[in-house]
Write a protein that binds this DNA or RNA. Structure first.
Lengths: 209, 209
DNA sequence: AGCTATTACTGGACTCAATCCAAATATTAC
DNA sequence: GTAATATTTGGATTGAGTCCAGTAATAGCT
């Protein structure tokens, strides 16, 4: 999808994710997401419908191009946090590190169109799959760090709540329009209370032992 | 979908949501969700494909029949909480009131199949649309109670985090198998830290004024 | 230049969810 | 029996997503 290693031989690509995403964005503005077919997009980009699926696996993926590119770093960001930090602090650090990549000038399509997510079931599906992917990353990290099972309630609850708060922050940030600054303060404000709440529970459980 | 007033005249219904959902559940067990077409379902239920859409608006809706029926009470449950309760306590009460409706014997299909959600994009879409609906209800409640705008970060962050935690609880509860008891303690454990975290922020903000 | 392996593009056929609509059908009320 | 009402039905349509066999364009080799 995003970066692909340039192969040493074979037919060169006629298009790119970026070209297709740009063509799609124009069309979405002109005729809305639902009013644009994949064929419309590929036609504007000068390739055939089939080719679209060489670059994306779904129409909705073009909206997430930038988000996917950044959000993929969450696992690394979490791993990079010094291991002596308490869990919730580490999570905070990891998420903020990812959020830093989004400045006022870089607002992914998927976020600006956040309200439209509920419009089309394709968009809903694409959004949930991203959400779940991040929850999963976070959940594994938490379970490992706390020595719990991946299926225990706590890792899952923390992960879902934190990612939920972060997504809410991103949505509010996108809604803020031109007055918005960086994403980071929004995310910090949204997730800090959640982190504090769970850290308190973890501390209490630890001191009881 | 669920309850419909029996009309005084007109052709009587040949089927019902329950009949279709039962037929669907059998088939999903036999051939998986993706391997079952709407036509398969209606055929087993003895009606035509078109009729399916008189009862449900999507194939995935049959999985959510029970969840939808209970979850619709959240707004009422929130409204029923005495207005002198602090916001986060009220939210807790509201969610627990809804959770009470699910006992060990009543585990909705959608929850038992929770892991399969990521399998099909139809299922993803159906799940997110439920999630967002509950977030919206909660967000309105919070915004009203705090005198904030619906679009402010705080109501949205609280709502998304809390519903996220509650969903995680429901998933863990469903996963617990026969050993699971009531849903309530799961939900309480998952959302209490979130509520505590946000309540602390709200108290701090209030005392500063 | 010709050959081969590799990779990408293309067009067409197919499945299925979902939408729309114009009959046809079965009831109640009169 | 007739009108009003509500439901069922079949058929047509759209569009996403999948699959695949055939074709085209490149690099490297001989």
């Amino acid at each position: 999808m995003g970066k692909t290693v340039r192969p040493t031989s074979g037919r060169p690509r006629l298009s790119s994710c970026q070209i297709l995403a740009d063509a799609a964005s124009e069309l979405f503005l002109e005729r809305t997401y639902a009013g644009t077919t994949i064929e419309d997009i590929t036609q504007r980009a000068g390739v055939s419908r089939s080719t679209f699926f060489n670059y994306f696996s779904a129409k909705s993926d073009v909206l997430w191009l930038e988000v996917d590119a950044s959000v993929i770093h969450l696992a690394d960001a979490l791993a990079a946090v010094p291991s002596d930090e308490p869990v919730m602090a580490a999570i905070r650090r990891g998420l903020l590190a990812v959020a830093v990549e989004f400045g006022p000038g870089r607002v992914p399509w998927a976020l600006t169109q956040c309200d439209l997510m509920a419009t089309s079931s394709e968009l809903e599906a694409s959004a949930l799959s991203r959400f779940l992917a991040q929850v999963k990353v976070l959940r594994e990290f938490i379970a490992a760090k706390l020595g719990l099972d991946r299926d225990d309630l706590l890792p899952q609850a923390i992960a879902t709540a934190v990612i939920g708060a972060a997504v809410a922050a991103a949505a509010a940030w996108a809604r803020a329009g031109v007055t918005r600054g960086a994403l980071t303060p929004y995310v910090a404000e949204a997730i800090s209370p959640v982190c504090a709440g769970f850290q308190a529970v973890l501390d209490a459980a630890a001191s009881k032992r």
